[in-house]
Design a binder for these strands. Structure first.
Lengths: 203, 203
DNA sequence: AAAAAATTTAACCAGGTGGTTAAATTTCGA
DNA sequence: TCGAAATTTAACCACCTGGTTAAATTTTTT
């Protein structure tokens, strides 16, 4: 049940999101954003004083989607395998909904990481609780011992990477067949879960 | 033992590589490339008629590095575990040497995939032999059965992804400590190998 | 020494960029 | 109805973009 937004600011944000995600900060044009929002350039500056300010707003919004709070899952009393299943499932649902997020974030974070850094500071995001949770699971013998940083990166890599290189996979593995690619990405949920579970199971 | 290159064309290519990798096609400026090559803009167009032609040359060169021929490994008679070890080792050495390749390719392939497509066609690159090799390893019972596309994507994801999101990992996991990040990336060789091997072992 | 190739200089171009301004007009809430 | 806010129009700005040109100069090759 989506809320109907028809005020100008939201129209601008929607249009700017589309354009920035597709073209990136460097490739985006204020005129195109104005056109897509159905307004003119003057009004664009009436709402957001500069391209940079507008981009920051969009970037912050999108990074907030890509770095969701997963506290409830982490702090639940479920066994690790079920935490993993929930986390991977939730995250892949999100990626299927926003398939262009990974490429956008890779692009912009490598261009200028400071907006990302300030988001992290503002949001208070930290990996420490996740690391602690993993360490405890290892101590309980639910997971084989390994550096938690590697496990975290591995899980995220398996989820995110296929979306970041979508055009490559689509062409090389599926010869441009969009249906097959979509099917493949849908399968990732089970694939990542079982792949990780086997990889971390103790002796 | 690097070959000393001091002719202008190579100076241009080196400079253009730096600038395009760092800023991308949209962010790159011909003036900056000329400055870095120690020449002027007129001479830049004397060698490469347009920005697009220069970019194509650089992109093709870099994609050729990122999609190396791994035929010798695939067609060797080694057991799969050793093939994996060799392939991952070789590829991670390459990524450590060119750490900005993944972000560059993600960026540019998502901006315009056609140069990538034409490279694939020209080079005759195909996943089919890799798929066949994996299938045979499964038939021999060396690997648990799974879709070869997923296994391929998983291995590449585990290798490449950390480099693509290097600034994020550096900040979130290592609080900006470059040494720690470097150490982490060096560990990936063993990490990916053991992670994948456990994930694919039968039963 | 002559010819050819490489390089510089410096000016120039058309077109696009983000951004601004002022005035007129429309919309909308008090 | 009145006034404020929202929106449009249209012109304008300085600056940057990729790209071109012609002539002079230097370097290299023959």
């Amino acid at each position: 049940m989506e809320v109907k937004k028809d005020n100008t600011e939201d129209k601008i944000i929607d249009a700017a999101t589309d354009v920035f995600v597709q073209k990136g900060m460097d490739g985006a044009r204020m005129q195109e954003i104005a056109d897509r929002a159905g307004i003119n350039k003057a009004l664009l500056h009436y709402y957001f004083r500069s391209k940079e300010k507008l981009f920051d707003a969009i970037f912050t919004k999108l990074i907030g989607i890509a770095f969701p709070r997963i506290g409830q899952i982490i702090f639940s009393e479920l066994p690790f395998s079920e935490k993993l299943e929930q986390a991977v499932g939730t995250y892949l649902d999100l990626l299927i909904k926003y398939p262009f997020l990974p490429a956008f974030i890779v692009k912009e974070v490598n261009r200028d990481a400071t907006p990302f850094f300030s988001f992290i500071e503002r949001s208070g995001f930290s990996v420490d609780p996740i690391k602690r949770m993993l360490q405890e699971a290892m101590d309980r013998g639910e997971i084989r011992p390994m550096k938690p940083e590697h496990l975290m990166v591995n899980i995220i890599a398996l989820c995110v990477f296929p979306f970041a290189v979508r055009p490559i996979i689509n062409h090389v593995a599926f010869k441009g067949d969009d249906k097959a690619l979509k099917q493949f990405l849908a399968e990732r949920k089970d694939e990542v879960k079982s792949f990780v579970l086997k990889a971390i199971q103790p002796e």
